Amino acid sequence: MPTTRRTTLKALGTTGVGAAVAGCQAGSSVDQATERERQESETQPTKPTAERVAADPTDVPEPIDRDEPKHHEITLTVEEVRAEVEQGVVYDYMTFDGQIPGPMIRVRQGDTISFTLENAPESVMPHNVDMHAIYGTGGGAEATHVTPGESAAERFTATYPGAFIYHCAVPNMDYHISSGMFGMILVEPKEGLPEVDREFYFGQHELYTDKPAGEKGHHKLDMEAMKAEDPTYVLLNGEQYAITPKKYGAVQAERDETVRVYMVCGGPNLNSNFHPIGNVWTEAYRDGGLASSPEEYLQTVNVPPGSCMVGTMDLPVPETIKLVDHALTRVARKGMMGVVAVDGEPNEEVFDPDPNA
C-alpha cells in the first residue's frame, strides 16, 4: 500500500492507542505528545470562541416507532473550541458538533449506519471515534482517524441493543475525553422502549486544570493532576452547574409524568454515583444494558467511565430534583449537578411539606 500522510498518521495513532491501553513502554511518548497538543492549543485566541458547550438535555432524537431496519447517514464534526467552564474561567474544549456530551445518536437493533467523522480545518489535533456499539477494530477508531481538515467514513450494523458511549480514542485519549470528546449512541431493542412523557440526555466528565476551581483566567491541562486522577472540576454537560436555574435553566416536567434519563459517563477516570435527590430510579438499566429487564427502585446507580445508564423516574409530586454524583464533594466543590423542575398541584397523600398548616 502506498505510504501517505493519512496512512502514516493512522498507523501512528493505532500503535499509540494499543501501547497506551496496554500500559507498555510508550507512556512517556504519549505524555510528550499530550504536552505538544496542549501547547499547540495555545495558538488559539485567548478569548472564548464559543458561548456554550453544554448540550441541551432536551435535544433527544424521537423514539423509534417502526418494525423494519433502516439505513442512516450520520456525520459528526470535531470542533475544538474555547469556552467558559464557569464565569471568568476559560478552557480549550474538544467536542463533537460543539457540544458536551456529543449529539445523541438513536438507531434500532438491525439498522445500518454510514458514519462520517469530519475534523474541522481550524482544529490543531487529530481525532477519531470509538463507538462501543460497533464490532470492529477499536470500535471504528482506526477507520475514522482524521487530521485537521480531513474526513473519514465507515459503515456498520447495529447488531446488539443498548446505550453505548462513543469517544475519541487517539493515543492521548484521556486528554481528549476529559476535554469533552464523548457522547451516546442508543441502539433500541427491536421491540422498542416503553413509552414515557419526556426524555433527557446528560453526560458527566472531569477537567484537570493548572489553576484552582474558580480562579479567573485561561485554565490549561494539568497532566500530573490527570495522572493522579485529581480533577479540578467534575461536570454535568461540560460546564459548572450548567443545567440549573443559575446557568441555562433547569429542565421542566409536570406532576404525574414519567421521564427517562439517558446518562453517559465520559470520565476519563471517575465513576459516577448517579442519584436523583428527592426521587428514585423507578427502573434502571445498568451499563445501558437494554437487553435485560430493568432493576426497580434504585436510589443510586454506579456508572463507570466509558459506560451509560438509562433510568426512569415517576413524578407523583411537584418538586425540584437535583441530579448529582453522590460523591458529594463533586457537587459542593467541583460543579457536578443538574436540576429537573417538576410543576403541578401538591399531592399531600404522597408528601406534605407542612402537615401543621
Rank of each mutant, 00 (worst) to 15 (best):
E229I: 12
A169Y: 08
P194R: 00
Y241H: 03
H218Y: 10
E188F: 05
M173Y: 13
D230N: 12
G180H: 02
H167Q: 10
N172H: 15
C168I: 05
L193T: 09
Q204E: 15
S179T: 08
T232C: 05
H218F: 09
D174H: 15
Y233R: 00
E215K: 01
Q240V: 15
Y233E: 06
L221M: 08
A169E: 11
K211F: 13
M173S: 13
E191H: 02
G238P: 04
Y208I: 10
E195F: 14
D197L: 06
L235M: 04
L193Q: 01
Y233S: 04
R198Q: 12
M184N: 06
H219E: 05
G192W: 00
M223P: 11
K220E: 09
A228V: 11
E188K: 01
F182W: 07
K216F: 08
R198I: 08
D174C: 15
H205I: 05
G183Q: 04
L235Y: 00
M181H: 08
K227F: 08
L221Y: 06
K220C: 13
D210K: 02
N237T: 09
L236W: 02
E224Q: 12
S178Q: 03
R198C: 06
M223Y: 10
E191S: 06
T209N: 03
D174K: 11
L186A: 10
L236I: 11
D222A: 06
D210I: 04
D210V: 12
D174G: 13
F182A: 13
G214N: 01
L235H: 02
N237S: 10
Y175Q: 14
D197H: 08
E206H: 08
M181Q: 12
G183C: 05
V170H: 09
E224S: 13
L236E: 07
P171V: 06
C168P: 09
E199M: 09
Q240N: 14
H167W: 01
